[in-house]
Design a binder for these strands. Structure first.
Lengths: 225, 225
DNA sequence: CTCTCATTCAAACGTCCGTTTGAACTATGC
DNA sequence: GCATAGTTCAAACGGACGTTTGAATGAGAG
């Protein structure tokens, strides 16, 4: 089982662990799918950028869709884990209010994913795009990954907002989900004016998270029936 | 210049005006682009469904992208017109408040487009999808159509919310735009359970509009800094 | 009827797509 | 050494893509 690009086999003992072909494919797939969407990105574009053979995708994953599925699962895992952790923590201290729940949902999606170096925004854009891909088949693929936590949030939100109808709570939840995905995908940043030296594409992620949370808290607390 | 399918030339005086090839292409393009996205929809699928020759697209529009552009322009025109009309009407009576402005923005997008028969939801889904297509090129195409009114809304919202910073107002506006597009595209309706006999895909459009407006009004009034 | 011109049509263009194949390569176990 | 199994590779597969071509069609003008 060769690890490739280890440049010889002896040297490169500590230097750059060098990603495996599989990891490189997942990384590039995240980036390209996030930029051009599933249909708009070819396997050839991915494999060329990943310095891999065109057949590598089918060898490691089985198909283009399976590559996407693997990328979604890998990208969502830490977000889901963090959301569950926060929910556990909140519920251990009694009944959380709406703001705490919204924060526990949004921050893992923006904070955790917009930080950590240059790959953060790439992962965020990828997740946001997949969540609202034109193809329902692909949206379901995302939904399957996020469903598990969804039910817990809905139930907790309902308890935090007892005067709101179940339909209203569900309405608020999908709005929250949608706005998060939109900001993750950076689809709302206007085309012109490339940011000069800033951290990355757009504003400070922390500020964005706070703004979005404040926006949603107000809407949940007073905008539901 | 034959009008095709006028069945003879004399008969069919009042009966079914029968759409031209050009109109049929626009109608089907709206539907298919709205369902599968731009990249996910082939010209062959469109021309077959429109009972037109594959070459008809390039004859009438010049290219696939030009067909999309024409469809976007046609779909957006009445929405933009209605928004301008409402804005004129509001501003003639003094300074409108946030709720009035939000209503004047949302209702033409949902109401006017979700009503009018079975084509309403088709047009809505199309607009919503194009607004957040994975390809930036296509998003810009939508933005170009909606830009003209945008500046007026931003300015009016700023006057209605003098305590909010310009950045906050812009933030609220893109959130409003995003949520509207999401509901238009019906991307948030869960896959299962096909609605039995109901008007169409989902809830009562009027109720949706009211819920969304209430949600946004609360967020604008108390969720901006 | 004849000419004109917008429209439709079948067919083909070259290119790119996702996927498959079978041989080559490479590290490891014996 | 040899066998083995995991991985990479160039090449090709059939099919679908957007676009182009040039001839057929049909209605209206003279």
């Amino acid at each position: 089982m060769p690890e490739r690009a280890v440049a010889g086999g002896k040297e490169n003992s500590v230097e750059t662990p060098v990603e495996s072909t599989r990891e490189r494919l997942l990384n590039i797939a995240e980036q390209r799918f996030g930029e051009g969407g599933y249909e708009g990105t070819s396997l050839r574009a991915i494999t060329v950028a990943a310095a891999a053979n065109i057949a590598a995708v089918n060898y490691h994953f089985g198909s283009k869709e399976a590559l996407l599925r693997a990328a979604v699962a890998r990208a969502m895992a830490p977000v889901n884990t963090e959301r569950r952790r926060r929910l556990d923590q909140l519920e251990a201290k009694g009944e959380p209010n709406a703001e705490q729940l919204i924060r526990a949902f949004i921050e893992p999606g923006l904070d955790l994913v917009l930080r950590r170096g240059e790959r953060g925004p790439v992962v965020a854009r990828f997740i946001g795009r997949v969540a609202f891909d034109p193809s329902q088949r692909i949206r379901e693929l995302y939904a399957a990954e996020s469903d598990p936590v969804e039910a817990r949030y809905l139930a907790a939100l309902q308890r935090a907002l007892p005067s709101a109808s179940p339909e209203s709570v569900a309405f608020g939840y999908v709005n929250m989900l949608g706005l998060l995905a939109l900001h993750q995908s950076q689809a709302l940043t206007r085309p012109p004016g490339a940011e000069p030296p800033g951290i990355d594409g757009g504003e400070d992620p922390g500020k964005l998270a706070e703004d979005l949370i404040a926006f949603l808290v107000a809407a949940f607390d007073r905008g539901l029936r």
